[in-house]
Simulated assay, not measured.
Amino acid sequence: MAPFTEDDMNDDNTPVGRRRLLDAGPHRPLLEAHGRHLAGTGLSPVSVHIHLGSARHFLAWLARSGIALDQIGPDIVARFAAHDCRYHSAPRPVGQYYINRVDRFVQHLANEGVVPPRPVAEVPALDASVAEWLDALARQRGLAPVTIARHGRMLAQILPLIGADPSGYSPRIIRDGLLEHARTTRSVHYPKMVASALRLYLRHLAHRGLGAPDLDRAVPTAKSWRLASLPRYLEPDVVERLIASCDPEAVGGRRDRAILLLLARLGLRARDVAELRLADIDWQAATIAVCGKGRREVRLPLPQDAGDALIAWLTGPRPAAPDHTVFVSLLPPFG
């Protein structure tokens, strides 16, 4: 940012407060329209105020930098993120959450046709063998789309290190590629997920005659130690204390109690609970339908305490569910 100028001075020749410099000026109608849009999505007044503060800062920076609206693009947002801000108590770069709110504002302006539309990122074409493998995961193994997408992302991380031509794979290339990925990965969990996806891919290649057999055995197993992460299960008395800790008088307590009882009594996965719909519950037969691995639907008996907790959650005050979802977020946007 430029240093203070005469326009930034009070009548007594002292600098004005930094917040007074955050003036959207002629772009104030855009700010007000963005506020109405945010309120329509279900954000609380406090959240709307926070979002508008970031957007106002961005508009003030545009005005002081002499940047027109038709010049706004990803590079302009990046410049704003890197600018040496003097509107705070101490000069510092703005944070990522701040930039995310500005990015949301710019996207709203693009949707309204105020600024140029953002270029659509070109998705690189999948290799034929990779595309065939992903299709086989859906048709033959019946994996969920989200699982298939995750396998595709994990494989995309290792292919640049081992090459895209399956005929050139060897145990040494496989091991060296995975070790190199493990040294540069951003998470301790990624090597294990990448190895799992690569193992499935190599088996598919061998089955189709596109790669050497038994190459999946060259994929090293990621080391793990007991007690190095969260416990794999809770003792029964701990589970009961956790369930009892839910406040039945609070909206969140009723929801959390129903979720915990379904997890504990029926052994459901988190996704089973998150995707539960009202139509999946048969109150007359006291059963619920869940879609297990392989997309096979099964009906499970609904225990009395879990059923009572569901009734308490569904009949009490709760956010509206637009798609008949049983469990919804208590924070906007709901669903």
Rank of each mutant, 00 (worst) to 15 (best):
L268N: 05
A309G: 00
A312C: 03
L263G: 11
A309P: 00
A285Q: 15
I311S: 15
A270L: 14
L300Q: 07
A289C: 11
L266G: 07
A312I: 03
L276A: 07
A289L: 09
R296L: 13
V298W: 05
I281H: 02
P301S: 12
I281W: 04
R296F: 03
V298E: 12
L261V: 01
T287I: 12
V273E: 01
L314T: 06
L300V: 10
I311L: 15
L261E: 01
D280Y: 02
Q304Y: 09
D272I: 08
R271Y: 14
L263H: 03
L310K: 03
G307N: 04
L268F: 02
V273M: 02
L310R: 00
G292A: 10
L262S: 02
R295L: 05
A270Q: 14
L263M: 13
L266I: 06
L302F: 01
A309N: 00
R296P: 07
L310Y: 02
R257Q: 11
L300K: 09
D256W: 06
G267A: 10
W313M: 08
A270K: 14
D282M: 02
W313E: 03
A289W: 03
P303G: 08
L268R: 07
W313T: 11
L261N: 00
E275M: 11
E275Y: 11
L278E: 13
K293C: 04
V290I: 12
T287N: 10
V290E: 01
L266C: 12
L262I: 12
L262G: 01
D272Q: 12
C291S: 15
I281N: 07
L266N: 07
L276W: 04
D282A: 04
D272R: 11
V298R: 15
W313Q: 01
R277S: 15
L262A: 08
D305L: 09
A279N: 13
V298Q: 14
A279H: 11
A258T: 02
K293E: 08
L261M: 13
P301Q: 06
E297D: 14
L300H: 11
L260M: 12
G316H: 13
A306G: 09
A306E: 03
L261D: 00
A309D: 00
G294V: 09
G267V: 07
L300T: 10
V273I: 07
C291A: 14
